[in-house]
């Protein structure tokens, strides 16, 4: 079963996202900030990461930049999922190595569509 790490400081968002990605056939793990996600990836590299931007301790973009430097860090498909909805943020995320970008609010259809576009489904 493929795995997905949901990184978001909102417990509610993590819960909603978990339900959606599990319905898509992924085993789901959660992290509440970039630092926790980084520690998780150092132990186990997931197949997909659904990543918020603004989080305490370590932001999503900082995490992504560090992830892509890690051994096997290019493996996971990273989908930003954030309220930052301007072109400058999207451009920055894609330059840092994101594979897709979701602007909140999201629903199951959007997540499924994005996962499918980048070959996760």
């Amino acid at each position: 079963m493929p795995s997905c790490l949901v990184v978001d400081d909102s417990r509610v968002v993590r819960k909603v996202a978990r339900r959606i990605v599990e319905d898509l056939g992924f085993a789901c793990e959660e992290a509440e900030d970039g630092q926790k996600a980084y520690e998780y990836c150092a132990k186990t590299m997931p197949d997909a990461i659904l990543l918020d931007w603004n989080m305490p301790v370590m932001s999503g973009i900082e995490f992504l930049e560090k992830l892509r430097q890690m051994p096997n860090g290019n493996g996971p498909k990273v989908i930003f999922c954030t309220t930052e909805n301007d072109l400058a943020h999207i451009q920055r995320a894609m330059n840092a190595g994101a594979n897709e970008y979701i602007m909140k609010p999201f629903d199951s259809e959007i997540i499924e569509s994005k996962f499918s576009q980048i070959g996760l489904l």
Partner: peptide, 23 residues
């Protein structure tokens, strides 16, 4: 709308072929 451009449209195409006008 933001919702409509996220259904089926790859982000690279959004960046390349769209301009943001408010929301």
């Amino acid at each position: 709308s933001q919702f409509e451009v996220q259904r089926g449209l790859p982000i690279q195409m959004l960046m390349k072929y769209f301009e943001q006008k408010g929301d």
